[in-house]
Design a protein around this nucleic acid. Structure first.
Lengths: 230, 230
DNA sequence: TAGATTGTTAATCGATTAACAATC
DNA sequence: TAGATTGTTAATCGATTAACAATC
């Protein structure tokens, strides 16, 4: 069951949700820094997201003691720490596999570049697309995936191929040494431990929404709940 | 603490994750039906996703008793039940707000249509885009949002506007009677109870991945974990 | 020093899983 | 009937929250 006391290896017991919240705290702290705030308390941070202040403090102390008792957290220092923890103090080179409908959209999506994530190679099956460039991104045949990613030491990839092809692509990515995969294919990928897959399953999300619409239709919001929240 | 015994109102205690898993079960059951399988056990279903068979059974019994002891679940019946529960036995009309980079991509994305979700109106701020059509989707000014959605009784919407504009859009959607929102804006929306927001925050996902790449770099996968899984 | 807020332990809550009687 | 698998209860596990001593 591994050590518990302070020496706790960071690789061990950190809940996935803590990591997700860390990114959210960072966004908030960035805004605070931009607004010229120098310090913020766990209570203030928590209020922004409807979280508990103890949770904010606990999330942060997984990685160190960043606060000052009686005062809170210095925004600039906290920002730097969060960036370091999340690995955002560096540029990331990302590979994209699949240039269909969704893949092309992602390639044009500026949101990736904003945070230092740069898609700089793409892979496709369709020979009509292979060999061209889209903007400054070169498009290669999927067969070239392993050698190219190995050579460039690319560790992050986005899968935007049909469900049926996704596992094969994932296997290649793993063979190429990729550590983290953003998977848009609506299928469960099987990868070795140590490789992180983040699924973005739009189809599942729509089905979930659909459930809640049906439910609201059946159980209308009770009057007491109407028009709360400013 | 509300009733517990069987009369349990469906609106009460169903974990959100159960709903997500329901959509996943459905996908699997669809494949099984297509393959001509007539029945499936909770064990078989669970194995496909690395879940626990008790969890599969528990998820399903929130909504009724669909199984046959000694046999499992009839695939066709289970499929129909899941579709009914998730509200997928009908077409959904969806509104899209924001026709920037991401919004346009979503409009072209065929994945939505596949499941009976049809984007049939879009809203924009930019007067150059308003008044045109994209395919068969009409583009209106955001100011028209409330009356148009009310008239058409649209209950689902996708937000693809910049973070700063998202809360304002959400308020309008709520005023128009929308019950479920798929939110791509990287911001926390505040909505009344009874309205479901599903966040798809690509930026948070990338930051999460980045964390795991950093971690793998520091704690390389132990040899014993290499190359497991089929 | 008095007031405030952290870091951390212990209590609580909710979700997952094991176990098994019911029953096909 | 014997074998299998459900539906469901009870045990386990993990994450959230309350509470408070430490300390700025």
């Amino acid at each position: 069951m591994a050590q518990k006391r302070s020496g706790q290896s960071i690789s061990s017991r950190i809940p996935e949700r803590t990591i997700t919240r860390l990114s959210i705290y960072l966004r908030c702290v960035e805004e605070l820094v931009a607004d010229g705030m120098t310090a913020v308390s766990s209570q203030q941070l928590a209020e922004r997201f409807g979280l508990n202040s103890a949770q904010v403090r606990k999330d942060l102390t997984y990685f160190g003691q960043f606060g000052v008792r009686g005062l809170g957290y210095y925004t600039v220092g906290l920002k730097q720490n969060l960036e370091r923890i999340l690995g955002l103090n560096q540029k990331w080179e990302v590979a994209l596999v699949g240039l269909g409908n969704l893949g092309s959209a992602l390639l044009n999506y500026r949101g990736f570049q904003q945070r230092g994530f740069r898609i700089l190679v793409a892979f496709e099956n369709d020979p009509r697309k292979v060999g061209h460039r889209v903007g400054r991104v070169a498009v290669y045949h999927v067969q070239k995936l392993v050698p190219i990613l190995k050579r460039r030491r690319i560790k992050m990839a986005v899968i935007a191929v049909p469900a049926g092809a996704a596992q094969g692509v994932a296997d290649r990515l793993v063979a190429a040494g990729v550590h983290a995969i953003l998977n848009f294919a609506p299928t469960q990928l099987s990868v070795p431990k140590g490789v992180k897959v983040q699924n973005v399953d739009l189809s599942v999300m729509l089905k979930t929404l659909s459930f809640y619409v049906v439910r609201s239709a059946r159980d209308p919001v009770s009057p007491s709940h109407r028009a709360l929240k400013k």
